[in-house]
Design a protein around this nucleic acid. Structure first.
Lengths: 375, 375
DNA sequence: CACGTTGGGT
DNA sequence: ACCCAACGTG
């Protein structure tokens, strides 16, 4: 039995706006710790990973793991019936084939209930293909949106290059070539730290915990990218491996047979890999945030909103990286800017890019394999 | 070698927004004095003339005259990658086939570079078909925008009539007729002066100078309009003169073989023709600006921004004029309202209308032949 | 169903 | 001037 009470329905609405064009059906995997969605996009090139930790909810209860197969188009329709500031409660009985949604206006003068049919979806649980990166760029999400939107006017793909100089986005097109160099903010070039997605959307939060996809056994086998058929995106699917002539490469989706064995393991991972280089700057919280620019809180009204350094460009880099990606997908990813004012790009050469928007107690992450043969 | 540094990319962006629907390809003629663009619109009915004086730029250098053949659609794409307040530098090497654009964020933390391919464009240098008019109406550009937009909903064409009473815009349509009378502001009816476009966009500036299109020999041969095929616009092109059955009339494009003979001539014209009527109110700066409404400077930060009398309607008239024009084109012209808060309409009977938006050190001007047979 | 364009509001 | 929403088109 699931019951999850979200303070603001708007969060879920924005999330669906972000991914509804990328994914049409997906399982919301609910368990005691979190609600997780992992799915490949419709063209099987990108991978979307969403997580709402239990702590993201005002109230959360899930007795046993249950997958809720949801048609996102339907869910979107139902969510559009909620106002952004409605309190939204999701309920599903064990083995239920419907999801109940209750919207309560904040002043309680309105209560709406919706029942949405669930469906069975083949749960090809996808192995998230990476755990550690050579570079992380943290930048304002609006800046990222702007850059990929601009460059998408010129060409099909963008070359992202991270160096000590900063991060460069470059695209070549028929009529024009474009290149945007973003210099890191003062003092915001960091190297020697372990770069990996934080376990949770919580900024500077505790690092261990309920990570679902980090698998210690997968720690060093970063690249699952096949390098054939160069110069194209990589298909992260496995389903159509042999019978289609798509130009895309593919990830090897790995059966996630270690799920659940992982809790409280990340913190130890970092400790053991941290030797021999600069330690992270502040206390060991895994986020490596420099102490510069102690911005005045932006008075956004929401105490939970992380509001520091949102305008900074932070570059963490252990190695120069240069990768090429399809702009079409990045433009799609950038729609999640409504969910966070910052975005992180994590990259290693020849490894899928991780684009992560972290919010209060959760995140939305996108994985996109690089085009190869031109990076 | 060209290098032109513009303080605000927004100026160029607005310019391109203005003309991109009218012209698709054009040469930017760069020389020591200015950058000039002259082109006919795609249907060869209207003529666009743009000038940026060297002084319009923060830095300007052009060693030798060079035409830059630009596809405006491409340039528009590239310019959309600039923020309005970016500093924009245009560079082109001699004989280059690319134009380099550099956008610097004001705080310099972002530098974007774009290379746009240039193209060869037949430089049918167009003789701007007039130098002196019987009437000039200066009005707020927003007012002009509103009038032509309103009337365009009623009919295809507008009759513009300038008299001592004011200026009347009238359109007859299937469902309704409309007429807008604009009275000149107090004391803003001027007659007996020479009415011609100023040599430069600079308000109240020196009148002689680097005029490219003024030709003394053409001064009195105003009308080059052929009066056949009545009731239609006039094609300003010469290229398709004989082999097409367009309904439009045509200007005679004249080879501009007297370019440069004109300097410092306008001021003398004014002196000798100035007698016998109200003098212009302020000092003889050629703009005939009344002293009314000594507006408080609008604190726009730019000392060069002309900000007085923007709400006045000024009519200079030596002869009653009544002309009919296609509203479709006027609506298009009026998009340049973003570039200046004032617009000037210069008219003589049976001669193309000149619509001029003057800005700091440049202008954009449109020429449109009247429909004949109904004026 | 998605994208691009146009119009209206802040 | 900028951002958001709605409409129409591909």
């Amino acid at each position: 039995m699931l019951e999850a009470k979200l303070q603001e329905a708007g969060t879920l609405k924005k999330l669906l706006d972000s991914i509804k064009e990328l994914v049409t059906d997906a399982n919301f995997e609910c368990n005691e710790e979190a609600i997780v969605l992992q799915a490949m996009d419709n063209s099987h090139v990108a991978l979307v990973s969403v997580k709402f930790s239990a702590a993201a909810f005002k109230r959360y209860r899930c007795d046993r793991p249950m997958p809720l197969g949801v048609n996102l188009t339907s869910l979107n329709k139902v969510l559009r019936c909620a106002k952004d500031d409605d309190i939204c409660t999701l309920k599903a009985a064990d083995e239920a084939d419907v999801l109940n949604l209750v919207y309560e206006a904040k002043n309680s003068d309105r209560i709406a209930k919706y029942d949405m049919k669930l469906m069975d979806i083949d749960a090809d649980t996808l192995q998230i293909p990476d755990t550690e990166y050579d570079a992380r760029v943290t930048l304002p999400s609006s800046e990222f949106t702007r850059i990929v939107r601009d460059l998408s006017q010129l060409g099909e793909s963008v070359r992202i290059e991270v160096s000590k100089e900063g991060v460069r986005f470059a695209s070549d097109g028929e009529a024009a070539n474009g290149s945007v160099l973003l210099r890191q903010s003062d003092g915001a070039l960091i190297s020697g730290t372990t770069i990996r997605p934080k376990s949770d959307g919580k900024e500077g939060g505790e690092d261990g915990g309920d990570e679902a996809e980090g698998s210690s056994s997968a720690k060093k086998e970063k690249a699952k990218v096949k390098k054939e058929k160069g110069d194209e995106d990589v298909d992260m699917s496995h389903e159509k491996d042999d019978n289609e002539d798509e130009e895309e490469e593919e990830f090897k989706p790995v059966e996630n047979d270690e799920e659940g064995e992982e809790e409280q393991e990340n913190e130890e991972d970092e400790e053991e890999e941290d030797g021999g280089s600069k330690k992270r700057k502040k206390k060991a919280n895994g986020t490596s945030k420099p102490a510069k620019k102690p911005k005045t809180a932006k008075s956004k009204g929401k105490a939970t909103e992380e509001d520091e350094s949102a305008t900074d460009v932070i570059i963490e880099m252990n190695q120069h990286v240069c990768l090429t990606f399809s702009l079409k997908y990045l433009v799609n990813f950038s729609k999640s800017a409504t969910l966070s004012n910052k975005v992180q790009l994590m990259m290693s050469n020849d490894v899928p890019l991780l684009v992560s928007y972290d919010f209060n107690q959760g995140y939305i992450r996108y994985y996109l394999a690089p085009k190869i043969g031109e990076d």
